[in-house]
Design a protein around this nucleic acid. Sequence first.
RNA 1: GGGCGAUUAGCUCAGUGGUAGAGCAAUUCGUUUACACCGAAAAGGUCGGGGGUUCGAAUCCCUCAUCGCCCACCA
Length: 847
Amino acid sequence: MPALSAQYSPKDHEQSVYKKWEDSGAFQPNEELLKQGKKPFVVMLPPPNITGVLHMGHALQDTIMDILVRWHRMKGEPTLWMPGTDHAALPTNKIIVDQLFAEGKTKEEIGRAAFIEKTEKWYEKTGAQILNQMKRLGASCDWTRNRFTMDTKYVQAVNETFLSYYKKGYIYRGARIVNWDPKTQTTVSDLEIEYKTEKAPLYTFRYGPFEISTARPETKFGDKYVVMHPDDPRYAQYAHGDTFTAPWINGDITATVIKDESVDMKFGTGVMTITPWHDLTDFAIAERHNLGMEQIIDFNGKLLPIAGEFAGMNIAAARPKIAEKLESLGLLISVDAKYQHNVALNDRGKGVIEPQVMRQWFVDMSKLKEEAIAAAENDQIRFIPPRWKSHFIDWMEHVHDWNINRQIWLGHRLPVWWKKGTHGTDQEDGNFVVSSEKPEGDYEQDPDTLDTWFSSSLWPFATLGWPDATDDLRNYYPTSVLVTAREILYLWVARMIFSGLELVHDIPFRDVLIHPVVLAKNGQRMSKSLGTGIDPIELIEAHGADATRFGLMHQMSFDMQQMKFDPEAIRAAQNFANKLWNIARLLDELKDRRQEGAADMWIRARAYQVSQEVGAMLAAYKIGEAARLLQDFVWYEFADWYLEIVKKEGSTAVARAVFADIIKMLHPFMPHITEVLWEHAGNSELLITSPWEFAEYAVSQEAIDTMRVFQSVVTAVRSARIVFGIPMGSVVEIYSDASLPMPETLEALARVHIVAEAGGRMRSYPLSTGGVIMLYAAEITEEALKKGRDRLNTRAQTITAKIQATQQIIESMRGRAPEEKVQEKQNELARLQQQLQDIDMSRGLLK
RNA sequence: GGGCGAUUAGCUCAGUGGUAGAGCAAUUCGUUUACACCGAAAAGGUCGGGGGUUCGAAUCCCUCAUCGCCCACCA
């Protein structure tokens, strides 16, 4: 057994330990256990973007998953953690387009095939580096099952899904208003839009007999409907369908009055004109009343010929000019320059969204949502923390149909084939075939690709081989728990739930565990541009993977919505790892001793208790609580008290056995160092697959009482030293009536010499367990005595106050509170009175 | 506009009805058989404000304030 170095150096062990695990096959689910009928534990890695870099959010999420996975593996369950990556169409598309731009080319110039080829090369080059970063953290994924959303097999699943939805009538093609991003030239889903508040002048114009307000005059060319609330008394004289002629930007137009309840009577004049082609609510009104609609702005954000003299202008540039023209026509009534409104931006690339009416593919959500809502409502799927359940149900109930095609080249092509030349024309109806194979005849594939979330919604089962009835699918579906951030609760989690229920006829996962968002310590988002980002790999290199994991867990609780990350926690965890290391060193040095004492019984009972608590906490996903409990137990009970005792007396065999249990309990949290120390202790089997079992040990009240007295004596002596000014280094004599527990250890730990008979100047000091300790020290100065008196006087005052308060409480409790509560209080009062007595006695001896 | 969360020691946070806890930082002391990435001791808080329920509130209820997030969306 080679001696351990004085400090734990993670770098020397992490990679080799990881290799041992991987070579052992421990990361793969144990087929034997599966055959025995053991219920498997399965987690799907939320697939990170293949070209992504590990950030603190990943580190937190991956640590949570790894802890659960390692714990269940040790509990003897066949355990599968399925890794993989997502093709991340939009961000990768942008990267490739930017690359081409740098080369002075456009994607149109090189063509679709060359573009895809370039993308594949890019994936190959940068691909999966994020998975290697996960390995640095110690993630025990089954890498033999690694999946990518663009795998041939996965593409089949995507096509199958489209076909299946289409056959059932869930997928339809329709002209609907969608979020168009002129910058990236694609549609964007509602969920991927962010709103930014912006100041923009709000113009009020005369529109026939009405006044209307708008922040976007450039959309108003085609407005020929004026809408008001049917109950608005101001406009009672106008009937739905009335028409009138009004002078407008490019001459007179005929407008029609529409009454619709969606109009807010309190806003402005309570009247508005609508632009259905470029506004979501206007579109809804137009649909309700079957109104005509017209495109004003093209797909590049420029005005169309309907704008007359403004045609071809960029909307931003045209806006003030149009307002000017209306003013010159005498139609401008007022301008509110301080007006604020929300501008819709694409999350990716921040292009300003211009809603457009386009023929698009949609998934009808009305049927799909039903089962998903039911699964949440009857707790087939549980949300942790539970408050997300109602959020999920609420969102699901109000979900809109899902626009699933995107106008980019990168991604899964739609399995849709158009008769040549019909796509995008008014000849579309009846001229397409939905099939994964190209049909006979003159057909060309739909140029669009599917929303990335369409494919990732299949992740829990497509990775297991669906649509084929594979062994993996049979064995590992549904999965056990999904660990995720709340920002993709709707975007991804909700979609996995309804697609799993629809396609595999079962929930995709039992529990949804939603972890907090990791923020910088000052509460800001972690971002490179703000300089608030922290690279987990740097943390691993500086402090070790185990410290990074443990520090994160020590700080985390699932009750939090956000976690202000303090890197100090990682440093503290590194100290803890070093502590473990040095405990092992101490145990190496101790000579064997087998006589068991009170301390041994106490620590064994405590270790068993802790193992039970940790198990219960992990089962309830209270990972942070478990980490904190373990650290406190190891440091403040096992190391600070028990090991100090075992240096002098007690059983080293017990010490080693308890430490082995500690190592085992800590393994899910700090896998590398525990594995190293496990091997160092002479175990031939790997810890990663060792059973999560602990020797049961009954709590002996006698041992616990002995320990409490012992601790109080040690603490009292230490305090008395300070109070009386006796140097820590020196030995003091204390008087014993021979009832002090563990006298030899006491002498060593408290630096005292126990004498049978008192002599010289006696001093006394109260014990927290009741009673006083008598000590003899020749050289106590008058000054120290005064200090001691002051100190005891203060304590006496505090206790007296407490006694009075407690007496009052007992008085007021009488007859109102339950009897046992009163009894509890009275016991407390007795303890306080005893303490006061002890202090008084000590004070009496301080002459 | 609707909702969720947070507000406790200088900082990051535990603490779901019984007189407030930890880590880090700061203070004092200490190197006897692991660890200075250590040990010991002491200090530090009217638990965001106000009101209520209760014998008793950091904890339950109401209200206000501040911060953060989510959803809807303003013509």
